[in-house]
């Protein structure tokens, strides 16, 4: 385990201990459950997959906020992926849309419990090294941007992302 990870773990343990002292064991347990729920219920555990055309990943739920989003951007290792190379769809057999199509007038609709597949075309996939993906969403109703960020070592895709559907 990397030094930074140990530091984070120790910090988490310390915070957990303090929460238990302040508010009791039930609060600590419940908060840990919510943290776990957030971590496991948004990003698909299959992680980042890569193929000839780029990378793919899947979400099980919208992150933090649901509804209509008038903007959707993705960063790949910190660099903005051009919106026309960002594709998404709610599931197999549905039509892909691109990030460039998303506007307040033509928003991305994402409801609780809805999965969403994402594909990034033309991104450079480092072999055997982790990449960091950040999805930023702008709600049409509540301005502050919400974002979700995760890391993973891309695994090969069995087949490339569909181009239409």
């Amino acid at each position: 385990m990397a030094r930074g990870a140990w530091s984070g773990l120790l910090s988490l343990l310390r915070e957990g201990y303090r929460i238990e002292r302040e508010f009791g064991l039930a609060t600590m347990e419940s908060l840990a459950e919510i943290g776990e729920l957030l971590e496991q219920s948004v990003v698909d555990s299959a992680g980042i997959r890569c193929g000839a055309t780029g990378a793919e990943f899947e979400f099980h739920n919208p992150p933090l906020r649901d509804g209509a989003f008038g903007g959707a951007t993705v960063r790949w290792n910190g660099a903005l992926v051009p919106p026309e190379r960002v594709r998404f769809r709610p599931g197999e057999g549905t039509r892909w849309r691109t990030g460039g199509d998303v506007t307040p007038q033509s928003p991305l609709i994402w409801r609780p419990g809805e999965a969403m597949q994402w594909a990034l075309d033309g991104v450079e996939v480092p072999v055997g090294r982790p990449v960091r993906i950040r999805l930023e969403l702008a709600s049409v109703a509540i301005p502050p941007t919400v974002w979700v960020e995760f890391e993973g070592i891309p695994r090969p895709l069995p087949v490339g992302p569909e181009r239409s559907g």
């Binding site: 984070g8 943290g35 971590e39 502050p144 979700v148 960020e149 995760f150 890391e151």
Partner: peptide
């Protein structure tokens, strides 16, 4: 939370008065 979580979430919300957005 960013220091310890595998998946990190955030809101670019600089202020939290009653009109918190």
């Amino acid at each position: 939370t960013g220091a310890v979580a595998r998946v990190r979430f955030g809101i670019d919300q600089p202020d939290t008065t009653i009109w918190d957005s």
